[in-house]
């Protein structure tokens, strides 16, 4: 059963059960492994993607639900290979250790800055509260989001 899906600005055709999670379709059918599995229960943020501009857990969306949406994954944020301001800021602040959570954080931060270009500290913490990081890079990540908001300093 083929389903059409809009991912990173392209129309893609996927041969997967309609009840499959968007996360598994991205990773196993489309080869977009930058969206990561962490819990499968919407509790960690590793799998976040932009769906119509909002950061959502792709482990909780089915392929069926996702086909009505415009999906952007971490791979879709760098336009023509140039890092987005948020990606650039995370790299510049070295706001990562293992980096497993980083894509999800960048997705949340991108959605935040689109609706609130100059967020307060608290707004950043709230917007990224769903992104768990076991390596403990929160302080750096907050700095990175601010840096992106300030246009790279």
């Amino acid at each position: 059963m083929k389903t059409r899906l809009r991912v990173n600005g392209e129309e893609r055709e996927v041969d997967a059960p309609r009840g499959a999670t968007l996360l598994s379709v991205l990773r196993d059918d489309l080869g977009l492994t930058g969206t990561r599995f962490g819990c499968g229960a919407g509790q960690c943020g590793a799998c976040y993607v932009l769906a119509d501009g909002r950061a959502v857990a792709s482990c909780l969306l089915t392929l069926d639900q996702a086909q009505a949406m415009e999906i952007t994954t971490i791979e879709g944020l760098a336009a023509k290979g140039t890092l987005s301001p948020v990606q650039e800021a995370f790299a510049a602040e070295d706001a990562m250790q293992c980096g497993y959570c980083t894509g999800g954080m960048i997705v949340s931060a991108t959605a935040l800055l689109a609706r609130d270009p100059h967020p307060s500290d608290q707004a950043i913490r709230d917007a990224l509260a769903g992104n768990l990081c076991r390596c403990g890079v929160y302080v750096r990540a907050i700095r990175a989001v601010k840096r992106a908001a300030e246009g790279g300093r």
């Binding site: 492994t33 930058g34 650039e88 790299a91 980096g99 497993y100």
Partner: peptide, 21 residues
């Protein structure tokens, strides 16, 4: 010195064990 993997990590192209196919 900036971490060598930083670019791949922020692009989502760094390959973790679970990403290997």
């Amino acid at each position: 010195t900036r971490r060598l993997e930083a670019g791949d990590i922020v692009r989502g192209s760094a390959a973790y064990v679970a990403d290997l196919r």
